[in-house]
Amino acid sequence: MPKLTSLLALASIAALLTGCTVTPSGRPQADPQPATSAASAPPSPSVTASATPFASASAAPSTEAAIPSASATPEPTPVASSEPAAPVGIIVTPEVEWGVATATVAQGSSFTITGSGYAPGQRISIALGIAQSDAFVFQDQSALADAVGNYSFTITLDPDLEPRTYAVVTSTPDGLEPGPAVSETRRWATIEVVPA
């Protein structure tokens, strides 16, 4: 009977942690809902994109245990953490000048774009398309600048996305008339997609 109680406790803990990730502080945090992409001409495989908080320079690793211990009564699971998660993997910051920021990314893998110097809460519009063309893999995605004007946005490429040169384009169009005013806010990053 004691084994059955332990198994029930572990099952309860597992159910509570479903959909959670572990933050650098070691505390579980609910996964953000990824924004899905919309494909436009030409038809292309899907791309999943999700915003992630930008890491602060003062973030330090925690020594707290990330795995809860089994007990008869599970402890409540926190759903939010005050410490932002650091972007991992390939990180690229789009620049004002085309061709300055570049990254090589394999099909099916992820990369994170970042930026700083924005107004707190400012919306950054994000699009991924075929370089030097009007063909988009996705557009109309966005991230919000944090309290100090930083943003971070993770893009996961579909494993079947055609290997070629793509471009990430960001802008801050809110409150601006379409045209030159929006064009002045654009930032670019070249993304070479290679076979996995």
Rank of each mutant, 00 (worst) to 15 (best):
E184C: 02
S183R: 11
I124G: 01
G115A: 07
V100T: 14
R164I: 03
A101C: 11
D174E: 15
D134S: 14
Y118V: 05
G179F: 06
P120L: 06
Y118E: 12
D158R: 07
A119Y: 11
G129Q: 04
I155P: 00
Q132A: 13
I113W: 00
S133W: 08
A143Q: 02
T185R: 07
A181T: 06
Q132D: 15
G149A: 06
L157W: 01
R123M: 15
Q132M: 10
R164K: 15
S133A: 09
S109F: 07
I126N: 00
T112D: 06
Q139Y: 12
V169T: 15
E162H: 11
Q122T: 06
S110Y: 05
T102Q: 15
G129Y: 01
D146H: 05
Q132C: 07
S125K: 14
T185S: 08
T185P: 04
A181H: 06
A103Q: 08
V105Q: 01
V137L: 09
R123D: 03
E162R: 12
T170A: 07
R187A: 10
S110G: 10
Y151L: 05
F153E: 02
P163E: 04
T156N: 11
D134I: 11
A131G: 09
T102F: 05
I113N: 00
S171K: 05
W188K: 02
G149D: 01
S183W: 10
R123Q: 15
G121T: 05
S109Y: 06
E177K: 11
T112P: 03
G115T: 07
D140E: 13
D158K: 04
A145L: 03
E184V: 05
I124N: 01
G108P: 02
G175A: 08
V148Q: 14
D140A: 14
A167P: 00
T185A: 06
G117R: 03
R164Y: 11
T104S: 15
G108V: 02
T112S: 13
G179M: 09
G175N: 05
Q107V: 08
L128M: 13
Q132R: 12
S183D: 15
Q122L: 09
D160F: 08
A103P: 04
A145F: 03
D160C: 01
L176W: 04
